[in-house]
């Protein structure tokens, strides 16, 4: 006779049914990243050596700001998912794993929001 519920007995033993969602977001952001990356790479390359005022004006123009905004959101999300997979693959210790995933999420959020802030500041003419 056990006091444990059927759910309690199987918890932690298998799928959490989150695998498809991870896969889907990984692929969705991957597809989005292709055109966005090409746009960002070429727009940066064609402005190498540009002085500060022109660079600020260029990055702050609506189309470029929108592209950068989307690129930052999509790639930070993508890299967060990717790093989570890597952490799950190589860190077996449960506590360390959770700490590493937390640290990774914080890193992504800091990078993402500071980049977004910089772009929006340029665009709104701060």
């Amino acid at each position: 006779m056990t006091m444990r519920t059927p759910l309690g007995q199987v918890r932690g033993l298998g799928s959490t049914r989150a695998g498809t969602s991870h896969f889907w977001w990984q692929r969705l952001t991957a597809v989005a990243n292709i055109p966005l990356t090409l746009f960002i790479v070429f727009s940066i390359v064609f402005h190498i050596g540009t002085d500060h005022a022109k660079m600020a004006a260029y990055l702050g123009s609506p189309i470029v700001t929108i592209a950068l905004f989307l690129f930052i959101v999509s790639s930070v999300f993508h890299m967060g998912l990717g790093m989570n997979t890597i952490i799950e693959d190589y860190i077996q210790h449960e506590g360390l794993k959770i700490l590493a995933k937390m640290a990774s999420t914080f890193f992504c959020i800091v990078i993402g929001f500071s980049s977004l802030f910089a772009v929006l500041k340029l665009s709104f003419g701060g």
Partner: peptide, 12 residues
């Protein structure tokens, strides 16, 4: 991405 963030922040 640290490099990209650093660069964007520097322009701003």
């Amino acid at each position: 991405t640290i490099l990209l963030a650093m660069w964007l922040i520097s322009v701003a």
